[in-house]
Simulated scan of single mutants.
Amino acid sequence: MRGRRFASEQDIERHISNGFGAGAGASYVPWLRVQDVPSRGRSHKIQGVVVDRIHHLFSDLERAYLLVCEFSEDVVDIREQYPLLPRESAKAIANSIGVRYPKYPTTSVPLVMTTDFILTVRQPNGDSKTVAKAIKYQVDLTGKESLRTLEKLEIERRFWLAQGIDWGIVTEKDFTVDLIKNLGLLRQHTLLPRELNNSSLLSDFVDHLVALKAYPWSTGQCLRKVASRLCLSYSSAKHIFYYLIWWKMIRIDLANTLLLLTSPLPDFTVISLTESAPLSEKSL
């Protein structure tokens, strides 16, 4: 799909009228899509787990943060590349702090600034709260080119502060490499085939797995033994294992324990087997 160009005020008005940067949940349309900014390096288009639509991410760090958000029990909506509109508000902030407001390259058109993530987060009392997150590598905040980056982040911070929305910066220091590797693996197993999505089967699976915790076998060996006892294929046993971890029916320290089939079975705690189980693949 061909990317869009922002070369005039008419372009911006057209994109606004076409619904870019508007909506919520599955109906939200990011202001910027991967194909609109091909020069921004590693990018990703990923089908959502929490939200049923394609997410447009412009860096590995944004992908990592999406994984963290989707794994959270509290994040109920994720809107990436969210526009700071109306521009007049952002431009007024820039003027008030003596910062040059950005323009589109090779034009005199003021840029529509964006926030990397706008999240809807469930609060302990059941209410929802909106939070804004800028995703930046640490080097972008401390390197030679950081001054301009920090100026634009200050515009962004004040824009959301004026609306009573909490804003913050997320860097690669906020999560471990192991956590992101684990979530990338587990995310492939968020749904079970109908024949495996059975509470009795899952309960038996966990019982057998718990019984094997005392033995010095690798995770792969343990899963093979469980598969044999339950007349499952090894691939089905792996799928169930990762599924149970993703949905927190069994809990593991994912931030500090890399899930490897060749490593010992990690320490885990059984939480629940049915309360949060989603629909099977074939029932969607």
Rank of each mutant, 00 (worst) to 15 (best):
R14P: 01
T257S: 09
L183T: 00
V226E: 06
H15F: 15
V99P: 00
L273C: 08
Y234N: 11
Y215L: 15
S96P: 01
D77A: 04
F159T: 03
V51P: 04
S280Q: 01
S235G: 02
D127H: 12
F117V: 13
D174I: 00
V210N: 09
L179N: 01
G25I: 11
I240K: 03
S203P: 00
S235T: 13
H239M: 12
A134F: 04
P83R: 10
S89A: 11
H15Q: 15
D77N: 06
G220P: 09
A22I: 07
V131L: 07
L67D: 09
R40Q: 11
R33T: 13
E275Y: 04
D140L: 07
V109T: 15
L119M: 10
P278D: 08
E281R: 13
T114W: 02
L147H: 12
F241A: 07
R251I: 03
P110D: 15
L261W: 05
T115N: 13
V34I: 07
R40S: 14
R53E: 12
S280A: 11
L186A: 02
Q10N: 13
R251Q: 13
L260M: 14
W31S: 14
R14I: 09
A26Q: 11
D74C: 05
T142I: 10
Y242T: 02
P264D: 14
L179C: 01
R224D: 11
T257W: 02
T114L: 06
H239Q: 13
Y137L: 10
K103T: 12
K133S: 05
K91A: 14
L244S: 11
Y101C: 08
L61V: 03
V75Y: 00
P38I: 02
W246Y: 06
T120L: 09
W246E: 04
S146V: 03
R2M: 10
D207T: 14
N182A: 05
